[in-house]
Design a protein around this nucleic acid. Structure first.
Lengths: 214, 214
DNA sequence: TAGATTGTTAATCGATTAACAATC
DNA sequence: TAGATTGTTAATCGATTAACAATC
């Protein structure tokens, strides 16, 4: 489906959660107003960039004083979808799957992983952080019944595509993919890849450059 | 220290590991030559972009046939530093720390996590995937003695800065930071942040946009 | 009031893409 | 040879930054 809705720049979307953290802290400290420059300083960014990014939320600041902390908090929370939980299924109860299941912080970020799935019978039916690991063959039925729209893939590379296929036929609309592999899915399914190898290559390369002249 | 060395664009550096994967696969299949367009198609990218990125490695291709698979493999491997292991220490043996310690794939990416550290006595002295978890107070001494240059931070947000400080005084030059927090470190220390909240916000936002007109 | 900070419009910068000659 | 693919140079695009009037 073709659309002309202008979507938000990824780079800006990725910065907003950082601003949210700073605003939360300010809120907890009872600060009433916060300026773009204040946020920028905390994150080593430019004030103008923070101002521009923040404007995506639709908030209107007050010249001279900045943004009302409570209001900015609410706008960011709403914009980022942190106030309504999206339920998700995770496939692949290996080390990384465990880590994501064990981390309770995602609920504050609007994502609630409600169940996990694995092919390996040794991993099935155990509970991790209160979440049951089901046999993979129950995925489709449960996803459809519970109208789950987000899937998290934490299986090895060679199984990732078939898991993605399964998710697509189970009406999953967004996939958070931790396998370092390009997934083939229909256009209307959103894939967000987390590729640690990519991040690592940036670190290693910069380290190498920096070492060469220090 | 000021430098005029032009460093590589992050975006390109992040794509190179993807190309490397495709090239590895081609190599395993006994392919002799591979074209930029072939790699691009596998990853749903543009041929011209792949060509330009690949040129960072210094390889010279053959018009009409593409790049020699073996040569491209070696150039990418060398460029990305996959052929020499960088030793790293990890701090924070929680869920995520376990996941990273348990994943053996980093060694192929040039990073060898050789030991872990944690404040919690219950986690100390156990072994994860053959790697010992030491008390945190042994970090500095061991890092200096072993000349460790890379640190991985997988502790909760509120401890991350002090761990970073410890790493800096232990002569760590690069930090792979999984805490969603801006670390304050001297200019000559490289920090690579992995922020799942950032990636998640992109997914959730796109999902929301897509749902609104489907 | 003077000064700080906003939102907007314009300029700059860098990355992506297009065009195309060279070449096997 | 014709056609495919390279490397390079130029054009386009989008994101970042600068400039500045408006305003509390």
């Amino acid at each position: 489906m073709k659309t002309n809705i202008k979507s938000y720049p990824d780079a800006a979307l990725k910065r907003l959660p950082l601003y949210y953290n700073v605003v939360c802290e300010a809120k907890e400290r009872g600060k009433n107003y916060i300026s773009a420059q204040f946020i920028a300083d905390k994150l080593a960014l430019k004030g103008i960039q923070v101002r521009k990014d923040i404007s995506l939320t639709g908030i209107i600041g007050k010249p001279r004083v900045g943004y009302k902390v409570e209001e900015l908090f609410l706008k960011l929370q709403h914009f980022l979808g942190y106030n309504n939980q999206t339920e998700a299924f995770l496939v692949g109860a290996g080390y990384l799957g465990y880590a994501l299941l064990g981390y309770s912080g995602f609920e504050k970020l609007g994502l609630k992983i409600v169940a996990a799935f694995d092919l390996n019978p040794n991993k099935q039916n155990i509970k991790i952080n209160g979440k049951v690991v089901f046999p993979l063959n129950r995925f489709k039925n449960l996803a459809l019944r519970m109208k789950i729209k987000v899937g998290v893939i934490t299986v090895p590379e060679n199984n990732a595509q078939e898991v993605a296929d399964l998710m697509v036929e189970s009406n999953i609309r967004g996939i958070w993919n931790f396998a370092s592999l390009k997934l083939n899915v229909p256009d209307n399914v959103i894939v967000q890849n987390v590729n640690l190898a990519s991040d690592l290559s940036v670190l290693i390369k910069k380290l190498e450059e920096s070492a060469s002249f220090n």
